[in-house]
Amino acid sequence: MADPRRLDRIDVRPAYGAEDAAAYQARFAGIPAPEMLRTLLTGELHGQIAAVSSFGTESAVLLHMVAQADPATPVVFTDTLKMFAETLAYRDMLVARLGLTDVRVIRPAPALLAKKDPDGIRHGYDPDGCCDLRKVEPLARGLAPFEAWISGRKGFQAGTRRALPRFEVEDGRLKLNPLADWDKVALDAYFADHDLPRHPLEAEGYLSIGCAPCTSKVKPGEDPRAGRWRGFDKVECGIHRPVA
Rank of each mutant, 00 (worst) to 15 (best):
A2M: 07
R5D: 09
R5F: 15
R6C: 12
R6P: 00
L7M: 11
I10Y: 10
D11V: 14
P14Y: 12
A15G: 02
G17A: 08
A18H: 01
Y24H: 14
I31N: 02
P32W: 06
E35D: 15
E35T: 13
L37Y: 04
E44R: 13
E44G: 07
L45Q: 01
L45Y: 06
G47I: 08
G47Y: 04
Q48A: 14
A51T: 06
V52R: 04
S54T: 06
S54M: 03
T57D: 02
A60S: 11
L62W: 07
L62C: 04
L63Q: 00
L63E: 10
V66E: 06
A69K: 03
P71Q: 13
T73C: 11
P74R: 06
V75R: 06
F77D: 10
T78L: 09
D79F: 10
T80M: 07
L81A: 10
L81C: 09
K82T: 04
F84Y: 13
A85T: 08
E86F: 07
E86S: 10
E86R: 01
L88E: 13
Y90M: 07
Y90E: 00
L94C: 12
L94S: 05
L94G: 06
V95G: 02
L98N: 01
L100V: 07
T101F: 01
A109T: 05
L112C: 05
L113S: 08
P118K: 10
G120F: 00
G120R: 08
I121F: 10
R122Q: 13
R122T: 07
H123P: 04
D128T: 11
D128W: 06
G129Q: 13
D132R: 15
D132H: 14
R134I: 07
E137K: 14
L139R: 09
A144S: 15
A144C: 14
A144I: 14
P145Q: 12
P145Y: 10
E147Y: 10
A148V: 01
A148T: 05
I150W: 01
G152K: 00
G155M: 03
G155I: 04
F156I: 09
F156A: 11
Q157G: 05
Q157M: 13
T160H: 08
T160M: 11
R161P: 09
R162N: 12
R162L: 15
R162T: 13
L164D: 01
F167V: 08
V169R: 00
E170G: 01
D171E: 15
R173K: 14
R173L: 03
L174H: 02
K175Q: 06
A180D: 02
A180S: 13
W182K: 11
A186Q: 14
A189K: 12
D193F: 01
D195K: 14
L196W: 00
H199R: 02
L201F: 06
E204R: 14
E204S: 12
G205V: 12
L207R: 13
S208Q: 12
C211E: 12
C214N: 13
P224R: 06
P224F: 07
P224C: 10
A226W: 03
R230E: 12
G231F: 08
G231E: 11
D233I: 02
E236Q: 14
C237K: 07
G238D: 07
H240D: 11
R241Q: 15
R241H: 15
P242I: 12
V243G: 04
A244T: 15
